[in-house]
Design a protein around this nucleic acid. Structure first.
Lengths: 137, 137
DNA sequence: ATATTACCCTACTAAGTCTATAGGGTTAAA
DNA sequence: TTTAACCCTATAGACTTAGTAGGGTAATAT
């Protein structure tokens, strides 16, 4: 299941992508427009800022804004920041690999092979989709 | 993340698929061969039996066995029984559809569109992969 | 028959995650 | 210097996960 955090995060990013580039949008505005609890959204945007996707400006007229062009933000990045590893098991994770306790032989593990396929197909989708793609229809 | 339940369930199924068709295998055997806690495995096999994938035989010489040929067991079925819906959000689930509380317009929701792609690609993989495919290499 | 093997079922629980909520602190612009 | 808005920490209820515990029931071999 996709967490609400990720869902809300993507919605916030797409909202920002629709605005004029570089102009800060207050959390409260995004919260109202996308029906997201203000405080929860605050923590999500903070995560996105720390990851380098968003910039922020304090004080009156401040808010959050995209640091890059929506065309240059791939969903792989977004998913990894918000949801964590793309892989469904650590033993097929490219960035967070971990050996399984119970698997004596990874090369012969059926789950391993299946999950590599799932990982690759999802990576392909996320890699080929940019934030700009999400708002174009 | 894939739950241990699903992971262990798939391992148990592949183990059974490698055995002579129709011959019952005791839980204890699978537990030892696949390094799975006996009691936990018991509850997983029970789930699989209730779903119609496995049959069981009681008493001495009893155990669990596949009810169908490994070629005829698709991973879509297995994943739905063990892990639940394939879709990452209820609003793109084929079998467990649910509207989102926060979405005023599903057709224009960016998350919705993205997750439909993910669902379809995963459905394709699970649908094209049988239990027999998992043990053939 | 009866002992044994193995399935069947319920209940419980420690640990972790999710989805927030609460409350205040800090910064910078007007 | 006021105020809008970001920044940060702590907490908590609900839920899920990954088991553990303990026994009940059925069927087989002898």
């Amino acid at each position: 299941m996709l967490s609400k955090k990720t869902k809300y995060g993507i919605k916030a990013l797409t909202y920002l992508a629709k605005q004029q580039h570089g102009v800060p949008v207050p959390i409260s505005t995004i919260s109202e427009m996308e029906n997201i609890s203000l405080k929860f959204l605050e923590s999500i945007l903070l995560t996105l800022r720390k990851s380098g996707l968003l910039g922020s400006k304090k004080g009156k007229g401040g808010g959050y804004y995209l640091l890059k062009n929506p065309d240059d933000i791939r969903m792989t990045t977004v998913m990894r920041v918000l949801e964590g590893p793309i892989a469904m098991v650590p033993c097929v994770s490219l960035n967070y690999y971990e050996k399984c306790d119970d698997c004596p032989n990874e090369a012969e593990c059926a789950v391993h092979h299946l999950m590599i396929q799932v990982r690759d197909s999802n990576l392909k989708i996320y890699g080929e989709t940019s934030l700009a793609d999400l708002i174009n229809y």
